[in-house]
Design a protein around this nucleic acid. Structure first.
Lengths: 244, 244
DNA sequence: CGCGTTTTTGACAAATATCAATGCAGGTGG
DNA sequence: CCACCTGCATTGATATTTGTCAAAAACGCG
């Protein structure tokens, strides 16, 4: 796994902007950096390996020993679980700044695959956990992130259990636009395939395609091409999304 | 909310077995107690109020300020989210030992309601968080629990997004039996209504009922009455549940 | 430009929801 | 003690949504 993708241990160069956690801060305004003093940050940086992963390549697989933790520096990752007959459920898409690989047990509970070209910081699990024991601020940050992930997971359960196809697609388009933090009317990039969207929303690609068409036909969004859209009527889209 | 359910601040009596966290330990063999020294435990106990809630009563509601954290001492709780038109998704059932109320933001992300007669320990959020800051072991325990909840949430997304009605019901029956940690062939109590099961599995009560019938007819389980069952063929039930 | 892949569109099938009626059980009051 | 009432659960008939299968269209890449 990932052999050859290793781009070498960080030593010289713009260290702070390369350790992932810190990069994350810059990108998302989150507090990991601020919570750690500079020399702790140096220590953490020394644990990190920078990894590059091409689109479509596995980062780790469900059930594999959870030997590493990661921060996503660049690109988009999908997390998913599969049934033995191949049915797949994507449980989330990660964007730069997100943390990856916290496992309650010794092995990963899901698989992770690069959607786009991806840059990661990889931390060996053991040394990261030891570092965390000495730095409760980091632990607090991760607990806070875990809580907010749990909240999105519950939101997604509501979507999967109770929303119609069109409501699911509308919800997805809204939340993805929100996450890219682009202003009103800006173009939103949709890097994943229809198949990924279907597996995320618990639908088939055909149903996703038809639901896209419906919201386009109603003028709620505009598809500039298959991987970019613009939200035209956010309020009506929110209505269609049946947001609680 | 909960006015009158208050049974008074703990002072005398079997303190350690009453503070919830500790009770939790006893019930589930989890390490909160072991992680805290006895005098820290005393301090935590002093923050707790014991609460009793009758079946069907709200404990807190989505959106309400998250002023308290809880541990469930006795009984079963359901957590759920609702859409404006009344559609509801139950995101989980809690059993004794479970922790409740971690909110990333200032307000609860879901509602909590007693399924059976419930006994809780209630901690004021602020003082609990201050206590936690001074006791990283507690923080670690909560992070670990949050990770494992996240894993079950992902499992549930797979169920909601990709499993058939019968597979959902079989999965539910299995996981509920596993949680009661009863031995092979023992009777499992199913305290919630069919409507709750439906809202948990993203189905209607009719479909739940028909799926129950299917697994009963195939001899995989036996329904002793509407709220108790026995798993007769765990392996075949697992197959039907399409566990990954 | 041509080929393979992804996406869209259409016709039809299957699963589950909806609507309606019946059954069952526990609680209440005569 | 029994009959009735009320709420929950089951069963059945039908409707709707979404999935499946197949073909055409669009796109991306050599």
């Amino acid at each position: 796994m990932l052999e050859g993708s290793r781009t070498g241990r960080l030593s010289a160069g713009p260290r702070l902007s390369c350790i992932g956690l810190c990069e994350s801060c810059r990108v998302r305004g989150v507090a990991i950096c601020r919570a750690l003093e500079p020399n702790a940050l140096e220590e953490l940086a020394a644990l990190a390996t920078r990894i590059a992963v091409p689109p479509g390549k596995l980062i780790f697989e469900e059930g594999e020993p959870a030997s590493y933790l990661f921060t996503l520096v660049e690109g988009v990752i999908k997390l998913y679980k599969e049934l033995s007959d191949g049915r797949r459920q994507i449980t989330g898409f990660l964007v730069p700044g997100d943390f990856l690989g916290l496992a309650h047990f010794a092995s990963y509970a899901y698989s992770a695959e690069a959607v786009t070209e991806v840059a990661l910081c990889r931390f060996p699990r053991e040394s990261f956990l030891r570092f965390m024991e000495r730095h409760p601020a980091l632990e607090r940050e991760l607990l806070s992130r875990a809580s907010s992930e749990l909240a999105s997971a519950q939101e997604q359960m509501l979507l999967l259990g109770r929303k119609s196809a069109k409501e699911r697609v509308a919800s997805f388009l809204l939340s993805f636009a929100r996450r890219q933090a682009t202003g009103e009317g800006a173009v939103v990039a949709l890097p994943m395939s229809r198949s990924d969207i279907a597996d995320y929303l618990g639908l088939t690609i055909e149903t996703v395609s038809r639901s896209f068409r419906a919201v386009v036909d109603e003028g709620l969004i505009q598809l500039t091409d298959r991987h970019h859209y613009r939200v035209l009527q956010p309020d009506r889209l929110r209505q269609v999304a049946a947001v609680s």
